[in-house]
Amino acid sequence: MTKILAFIEQRNGQIKKSSFEVAKTAFDLSNKLNASVEAICFGNEINNLESVGGYGISKVTLLKNPLLENYSSHYLSLLVDFINQNNFDVIVFSATSLGKDLSPKVSAKLNCGLAIDCIDLQVTDDSIIATRPIYAGKALLDIKINSPKKVFSLRPNVFNAGIPNENKAEVNILNVELDSPKVKVIEVKKSEGKIDVAEADIIVSGGRGMKGPENFKMIEELAELLGGAVGASRAVVDAGWRPHSEQVGQTGKTVSPTLYFALGISGAIQHLAGMRSSKYIVAINKDKDAPIFQTADYGIVADVFEILPALIEEIKKIKQ
């Protein structure tokens, strides 16, 4: 029988939201392939690891050691051993910064095919067909892995984890002994208290139409009001108005939030590359021919300085 393994990722002992998407997708695959499924997690103290049971996973193994709180080359060697010892055939990751680093290394060690940053997995005739965006989202590629073992990573925020049920997974703790890893994280520098665009469910992005860095105060206000993150076009990052970590697009971050505001952004192809898979896109631009309106779900053709204050006020009303 095919055996599926879901890789559950934690940061600071909290399971990442995208890992629930992995758990649910792995479980759905197991049903369609008539396969078994379980999960693995690396870390030390993990909050509520049994909650992956709510997404259909009945067994999760925690490889436990304080050295595993942060990512290191131990992840690869331990994971590959675990896969080989237990004969897993299909391994599912999230395409986070960690997943994108680790999943190809696993596939090289297993000498198997890999489909990274998938946005859809379909099962036809017992094969998994993976869909992934290519050419910055200007085309989609359907691929099939023909090696016996297969590695997939899922673009965060695209697969629906659904609402979990009450089930709890059995947590199997394996304390591991480790020496110093060959590649190790010695420090994590967090950007101050803000939500990262790559993980935010709502993003408010500003472009050159915002006229200057001081006007991003309004964008910050709206983002905070919505519990979202601030994003930026490359034009404003290059101008030094915003940090590169906020840049959305081909040379910035790829995001798939539920709601994306493009304020004073023209919608250049390289910007669209980073945000076109957002569920809802709202554009405010004074140029009715701006390409962003081709991609937006809702638009207002007007001066952003007229609209933005009113928008903030109106949203405050419903938030009360």
Partner: peptide, 30 residues
């Protein structure tokens, strides 16, 4: 190990809905 089955254009999104041309569109958008 990886076989290309097909390449296609992403489904074209329906052109967006322009809600208005001035501040009066804001309540409707929200």
């Amino acid at each position: 190990f990886v076989e290309v089955i097909s390449m296609k254009k992403p489904p074209s999104k329906q052109a967006g809905r322009i809600i208005g041309n001035d501040v009066s569109a804001v309540p409707e958008l929200v």
